[in-house]
């Protein structure tokens, strides 16, 4: 049955370990924190870690109302783009909204990140909202404004 091996209830925010054992993410996370130096599967004692569990998304699962205020987001599912999707030139960022600003090739970096944010090819369903930390978002925006200001200033000067 689909019961968490820790709380014995139906698994909520379910994740499965590589060894195949099912847990609620909050339960497993708590266990990993309990013995950070010795992260073992509670059921079979295989080595496990945060990066090696797979989240399970059932059909029609609603946007979860925030279990993540308390617990760090469960790890995101890994999704690889199929090969030959048409625009090879547009292949920036398959990772969603992560922006980065470099000092070296600054204006180009700026352009790519604009593309990244504005050019959204994938339907929403595949994006795990949990990955984007609100703090990160605010910070990214802040940096975007700073970058725009500097860019304009460069143009004017």
């Amino acid at each position: 049955m689909f019961e968490c091996n820790i709380c014995l209830d139906t698994a909520k925010d379910a994740v499965v370990s590589m060894c195949g054992h099912l847990f609620c993410w909050p339960c497993l996370h708590q266990w990993l924190e309990t013995r950070p130096m010795k992260q073992l599967c509670p059921v079979c004692k295989a080595a496990i870690s945060k990066d090696k569990v797979i989240p399970l998304y059932g059909r029609g699962s609603k946007q979860q109302e925030d279990p993540r205020n308390k617990v760090p987001p469960r790890p995101a599912g890994q999704r690889t783009e199929p090969e030959n999707t048409g625009f090879p030139g547009f292949g920036f960022g398959d990772g969603g909204f992560h922006m980065s600003f470099g000092i070296g090739a600054f204006p180009f970096g700026f352009i790519t990140s604009t593309f990244n944010g504005g050019h959204e090819q994938r339907p929403h369903i595949f994006q795990d909202r949990g990955v984007v930390n609100p703090e990160d978002e605010v910070l990214s925006k802040l940096f975007l404004y700073v970058a725009i200001t500097i860019f304009l200033w460069l143009l004017i000067a």
Partner: peptide
């Protein structure tokens, strides 16, 4: 340089 800041561990 990717922007990364330390998320406070939920103590």
């Amino acid at each position: 340089m990717a922007l990364k800041f330390n998320r406070n561990k939920h103590n």
